[in-house]
């Protein structure tokens, strides 16, 4: 469904990707994990055509995303759904209208049917009762669930989730996990998840790609990665402070800097 080949990308001279290859099977749940700042969200943005690589290509459903014109890209996006990190709900619309938005923009369905579909999706994420609330009245977790309902409302073939578990309480997290898996299996869609939550990802993903230092450090099933002896994989999967990935951003000597006179 998604094929990434030889992806290179830099921002202001800082290399983000130095030759990334990955393959997302149709109908699978694929997770992209890695330490902060490794470009996971950037990779998602390239898959959805929001950003273009310096070289290499990203194919989605057989189409080279970087080579698509604006109209073709919008056509491709009709077959995609994306859950943003912050939900990105439209603040002028209530919850119902947020979820109904793609239906109203792309279909001529009668109002009764739109209402039926929207309420079904809101029921799925447990927020049918919040249909009349405005985004400002929702907690972070609720906003994320509304955004999930909106991402699913057009029954896309590819769903990309950017940090879907951040800010969710344990009950909502369990529901969202089940939802991702069930939606994927029942509708035969493909899911790509960017997340830091190792346990949750291991319980839902078929394949995990671990990004580090601009390349794929490891790839495989959750069992493969949990059983891996590679230092970077062990450090990430077990959350160890010491290992190839430094906790601290590069900085001058700590004591020296503290003793330095303020400028």
């Amino acid at each position: 469904m998604v094929v990434v080949r030889g992806l290179h990308f830099s921002i202001n001279g800082r290399v983000i990707f130095s030759g990334i290859d990955l393959n997302v099977r149709r109908g699978s749940v694929t997770a992209i994990m890695g330490p902060s700042g490794t470009g996971k969200t950037t990779l998602l943005r390239m898959m959805t055509g929001q950003q273009r690589p310096d070289s290499g290509n990203v194919e989605v459903d057989g189409q080279d995303v970087g080579a698509l014109g604006r109209t073709q890209l919008l056509d491709l996006r009709r077959r995609m759904g994306m859950l943003f990190q912050n939900g990105a709900l439209l603040t002028d619309f209530d919850v119902f209208e947020n979820v109904a938005f793609p239906l109203r923009e792309h279909t001529r369905l009668p109002e009764r049917l739109i209402r039926h579909i929207v309420l079904t999706k809101l029921q799925t994420v447990g927020l049918r009762g919040a249909a009349q609330l405005m985004p400002a009245e929702l907690s972070g977790g609720m906003a994320r669930r509304v955004a999930l309902a909106r991402a699913m409302v057009m029954d896309p073939r590819l769903l990309v989730y950017d940090e879907p578990f951040a800010g969710l309480d344990p009950i909502s997290m369990g529901v969202v996990l089940r939802l991702i898996r069930q939606t994927n299996d029942a509708l035969g869609i493909t899911s790509i998840i960017v997340s830091h939550d190792v346990q949750e990802i291991c319980s839902v993903a078929d394949t995990i790609y671990l990004l580090s230092d601009g390349s794929i450090a490891a790839a495989g099933t959750p069992q493969d990665l949990n059983g891996s002896d590679a230092q970077i994989v062990r450090q990430f999967m077990q959350g160890l402070p010491d290992g190839p990935v430094p906790f601290h951003y590069p900085a001058p000597d700590y004591h020296g800097q503290l003793l330095e006179r303020a400028p």
Binding site: T48, Q50, R70, L74, D75, R77, R78, M80, G81, M82, F84, N86, A88, L89, L90, T91, F101, P102, E105, H106, A147, R150, M154
Partner: peptide
């Protein structure tokens, strides 16, 4: 500007809605 900062315009693009037109 606020719609841009809160990803609302990006979300529209991802819903295949052109924010320039909408």
């Amino acid at each position: 500007g606020l719609m841009r900062a809160t990803d609302q315009l990006a979300a529209m693009e991802m819903m295949a809605v052109d924010p320039l037109r909408r």
